[in-house]
């Protein structure tokens, strides 16, 4: 509205000049130029429309669609690669956990195996020692009884020697045995 007022103002200020020239009047309202302008407008705008609708717009549209498709496919590819990497990482983690468990199992086995071996060795040694002890005890007993038997003989010899020294005559073996047994308190 303001612009129209302004144009009206300028038009009125220019009117005297226009009147002085008065060559076909106000150019935009000069109907004799209408046919030519319409003709050239139809020609140029028609050409523009054909160029745009046949050549330029399909091409630019294709470029834009192409770019969008490229970006989309690249993004899809990237996300696919990321997913693959994640799967791989998971696999690796699993393998690591498995290897750890394996190592633990092996260590456990080795430990229990060595413990079992040690146990077996110890029990064998203990058995051997026990057997040796029993044998030693038996030999001690034997020696003891042997020694005890020897002690009787020695005592009889000593008794008959003492009596011979005291009485001058050797006692009989039976008398000595009898005496010893009596001395033993039987």
């Amino acid at each position: 509205m303001r612009r129209f007022l302004a144009s009206a103002l300028f038009l009125s200020s220019a009117l005297p000049v226009l009147a002085a020239e008065s060559k076909g009047g106000f150019p935009p309202f000069n109907a004799s130029t209408f046919a030519g302008q319409l003709f050239w407008l139809a020609l140029t705008f028609g050409t523009l429309y054909l160029l745009m609708s046949r050549v330029a717009l399909p091409r630019v549209g294709a470029i834009l669609a192409d770019r969008e498709a490229k970006i989309e496919s690249s993004l899809a590819q990237a996300s696919k690669a990321q997913a693959a990497a994640e799967v791989e990482a998971q696999g690796l983690e699993q393998a690591l956990a498995k290897a750890k468990a394996n190592a633990q199992a092996i260590a456990q086995e080795a430990r229990s195996k060595s413990a079992r071996e040690i146990d077996a060795k110890r029990s064998a040694v203990e058995k051997e020692l026990a057997a040796k002890m029993i044998a030693a005890e038996a030999s001690i007993n034997e020696t003891k009884t042997k020694a005890m038997a020897n002690v009787e003989d020695i005592a009889r010899d000593a008794v008959s020697a003492i009596i011979e020294q005291l009485s001058g005559k050797a006692p009989t073996a039976a008398a000595v045995t009898k005496a010893i047994n009596a001395a033993r308190g039987e």
Binding site: T33, A35, W40
Partner: peptide, 17 residues
């Protein structure tokens, strides 16, 4: 019979296109 002259208006239409 119509005046279809190439005018300054037509020239600037061609330039625009």
């Amino acid at each position: 019979g119509f005046d279809m002259s190439f005018t300054n208006s037509a020239l600037w239409m061609v330039i625009a296109v």
